[in-house]
Simulated assay, not measured.
Amino acid sequence: MNRTVHPIEQESFRRLRARLDTSCFPPLTRAVVERVIHSAADLEYATDLVMTEEHLAQGHFALHSGAPVVVDVEMVAAGITRRETVCRLRDAGAGPGLTRSAHAVRLAYEEVGPGALWVIGCAPTALEELLTLDASPALVIGLPVGFVGAAESKAALRDSGLPAISNVSEKGGSAVAAAALNALLYHPTSSEEIS
C-alpha cells in the first residue's frame, strides 16, 4: 500500500531507531514493534510485545486479501487508517455475566464469521469473550489496557495458541492496538515489493 509519510513521522522513526536497534527483528515483527513504540513513545514495548513472524505473515496475508477487521471500541477504529472496520459496541447491551464489550464481540462474530482480524485495545472482557468463540481468527491483536483483567486476558490469549499479537504487561490501549494493525496494513505485499 503506497502512502505518503509525513516528515514528522520520518523524523520520529529516525529518532526511535537512534535509541533502539530494531534491525534484529524479522520484517513484520520490526514493523509492529516500531509502530507500537511510535504510537506510545514507550521503548519498553520492544521486550513487552509477544508475537511470531509466522502469525504476522498469516495476518498480513489475510488483511491484504480483504479479511474483515473487527475492533472492540470506536477509539481503535478511529486509529486504523485506510481500512473499514466492524465495531458493534453501540448495538450491544450488558447483561448478567456479560459486559457490553463481550456482547459486542458476539454480535460482531455473528456478522463476520470466522477468518477475521480482531483488534482489541480497550476491554479485557472483549478478549475473554473472543476466546470462548470458535472464531478461527486470521490474527488477534490483543492489547487491552488496565489493572483488572488486562494482563490475565492477554496471557489467556497466548495460552490459546491462536495467531496473535499481545504483550505481557498491563499496558496497551486503543492507540497501541490500532498501531499494530496499521503496521501490517502499511507493510508492502510481495507484489508491491516487486513493483
Rank of each mutant, 00 (worst) to 15 (best):
P7V: 04
E9F: 02
E11I: 03
L20D: 04
D21R: 00
T22F: 00
C24K: 07
P26W: 09
P26G: 10
L28T: 15
V32E: 02
V32S: 01
I37R: 03
A41E: 12
A46R: 15
M51P: 11
M51T: 09
M51S: 02
T52W: 13
A57V: 02
G59Q: 07
G59A: 12
A62W: 02
A62E: 12
P68V: 01
V73H: 02
E74K: 10
V76I: 11
V76K: 00
E84Y: 03
V86S: 08
C87I: 11
R88A: 14
L89F: 05
G95P: 07
G97F: 03
S101A: 15
A104V: 06
E111G: 00
A116S: 15
A116E: 07
A116V: 12
W118A: 07
W118E: 07
C122Q: 14
P124I: 12
L127F: 03
E128T: 11
A138G: 12
P144G: 12
G146M: 11
F147N: 05
F147I: 04
V148A: 14
A150Q: 11
E152K: 12
E152F: 03
E152P: 09
K154W: 02
S160Q: 00
N167I: 06
N167R: 03
L185R: 13
T189C: 08
E193M: 14
